[in-house]
């Protein structure tokens, strides 16, 4: 562990760190919110597979720019991530109608394709290897003001949609047959939920990296569903915990000179683990 900053130094240099710290917090909040559905619908591996696919999409965009002479949208890493994410989600949603074993197998294939594809393409874009590392594990250096705007706009739109329609998303997630019998547009709600997850994962993977994206979409929600008395409060708590993990992880990375994504992930693990004794204490009251 190298020499890091003090807390005072971190806030003295706030202008330098603001974009990355805010991006981590917003991404953590957005993915924390969506993570409640990921965890309660037992789709944890879906998030891992989709973030890997998104990473592969970013690598493909770099490759297209460097070796195929692509320009504009075709070389845009965010669109590359979004394209592969949407393909992965579409495959998973269709596969989900089969047996759980088939869906698990499909998730495994997508994860492996994403991971192996990113590594394979990475060897062809050596001059941009640092970018690929940043993509996979998260870094502070890569965050620019446009990224803050992108993540904030994505979070605002998806967050507003989920605030508005959360009862519908909960109904199709936790009582799908009942929702269909009561005439809710179950298929449209399911697709919208997966689409928002896909967009959030692809944008966040592009900006903060695959590792913290996966971590934020699982760990805050794990803690929240243990501690909250119901789903709406779990959604709120997971959003707050996700933001704390995003910002706190960045702060820890600065203090202890750690990779940002790793620090955010480890803080998320600590939050999820601490929920177990807290829930136990709350139960005894």
């Amino acid at each position: 562990m190298g020499e890091g900053l003090t807390v005072e130094q971190f806030f003295e240099l706030w202008d330098l760190f603001r974009d990355a710290a805010l991006t981590g917090a917003i991404a953590g909040a957005l993915l924390g919110l969506l993570g409640v559905y990921v965890v309660l619908r037992r789709m944890v591996f879906l998030s891992a597979a989709v973030s890997q696919a998104a990473g592969c999409g970013v690598a493909l965009a770099f490759y297209a720019r460097l070796h195929l002479g692509a320009t504009g949208l075709l070389a845009d890493p965010t669109l590359g991530a979004a394209a592969l994410t949407l393909i992965a989600v579409a495959l998973i949603v269709r596969g989900g109608r089969q047996t759980p074993a088939a869906r698990d197998g499909l998730l495994g294939v997508i994860w492996l394709l994403g991971a192996a594809g990113t590594l394979a393409i990475g060897t062809r874009i050596v001059q941009d290897l640092a970018d690929i590392d940043a993509l996979l594990f998260g870094t502070a250096v890569a965050v620019v003001p446009e990224d803050v705007t992108l993540v904030a706009a994505t979070a605002a739109i998806i967050g507003a949609l989920h605030l508005w329609a959360h009862r519908g998303f909960a109904a199709v997630s936790f009582d799908p047959d009942g929702a269909r019998v009561r005439g809710l547009p179950a298929r449209a709600l399911d697709w919208t939920l997966f689409a928002t997850l896909a967009i959030a994962v692809s944008v966040c993977t592009r900006v903060i990296g695959a590792l913290p994206t996966f971590a934020f979409s699982v760990l805050p929600a794990l803690a929240a569903v243990r501690l909250a008395p119901n789903v709406p409060r779990a959604l709120i708590l997971a959003t707050i915990l996700g933001a704390l993990c995003g910002f706190g992880g960045y702060l820890l990375a600065s203090l202890y000179d750690l990779p940002v994504g790793a620090a955010q992930t480890l803080l998320g693990v600590a939050v999820a683990a601490s929920a177990v004794p807290i829930a136990w204490l709350l139960d005894r009251r």
Binding site: A165, R167, G178, R182, G183
Partner: peptide, 11 residues
């Protein structure tokens, strides 16, 4: 409470 919604009333 989850049983209240029908159709598009969840909005």
């Amino acid at each position: 409470r989850a049983g209240l919604d029908h159709g598009w009333s969840f909005l």
